[in-house]
Design a protein around this nucleic acid. Structure first.
Lengths: 124, 124
DNA sequence: TCTTACGTTTACGTTAACGTAAGCCAGCGA
DNA sequence: TCGCTGGCTTACGTTAACGTAAACGTAAGA
């Protein structure tokens, strides 16, 4: 259950520098064995939460809020609502992205078609 | 069909500074009436392409490539393929984002539930 | 005539999220 | 004992995409 920094870096495909940076931002606080950082399973989960947050498009600051929701007190109702709101926003944004991609796909299809036609015209 | 810079800024909900910046990056080259920039319908379309690209998550550099696909020659096949590849990548990324959001949604649901329970326990 | 709105250029400032380099320590296998 | 591997801290550098400010020109309207 204890991990070194490079263990986690390898597994999660990020750099040690990034992990230390997240700690600097107050999102992690691993144990120490002397100077060395020793990460627990919980730390690992936290890192995964951070990465998932990032994939969704949250800033590190937002990821931090997110982590705090899972943390000690399940308490802060207002904060919870705030965050559910942010999630809802992301979902809308995702819808828009899907629309944009589909649209672009259509246009690229016709562009490709024109391109192919031009090529064949040249070949013939 | 001619637009002023603030016309477009208003309509597309961006700042004139941003529009000038896109021009600086070689993505636009509006006419001039003396000093003033005068934008055509085509310029407007280009701007919309840029914004759509950005929404999908492309960098401005990528948006520029994208624009060049629509531009003069329909020619460059390799470039077309390169870009279709980038689009494909984005689609995969979108899939992952959707998964991430659904997962987070689930966890937030239970978090909310715990929270509600805690509140009621306190109230009783 | 004054001011208000809109436009221009030039140029330095900003933010996020690390990258990169320097200089150092500790353990370990040959 | 040497050299490597891996870790640490401190601190400056970097990139993208504009923001912001200064300093100026111009046309319209009260």
């Amino acid at each position: 259950m204890p991990y070194s920094i490079s263990d986690l870096a390898r597994e999660l495909d990020i750099t040690p520098r990034a992990i230390r940076f997240y700690e600097e931002q107050g999102m992690l606080s691993p144990e120490r064995r002397g100077q060395e950082r020793v990460y627990s399973g919980k730390d690992r989960v936290t890192l995964k939460l951070i990465l998932r947050g990032k994939r969704i498009g949250f800033s590190l600051a937002e990821c931090k809020e997110l982590i705090e929701l899972y943390d000690p007190e399940g308490g802060n109702r207002k904060q919870l609502e705030t965050f559910m709101h942010k999630i809802a926003e992301r979902r809308e944004q995702l819808e828009q992205q899907l629309l944009d991609i589909r649209q672009m796909q259509l246009e690229l299809d016709t562009a490709e078609e024109r391109c192919r036609a031009a090529l064949e015209a040249t070949t013939v």
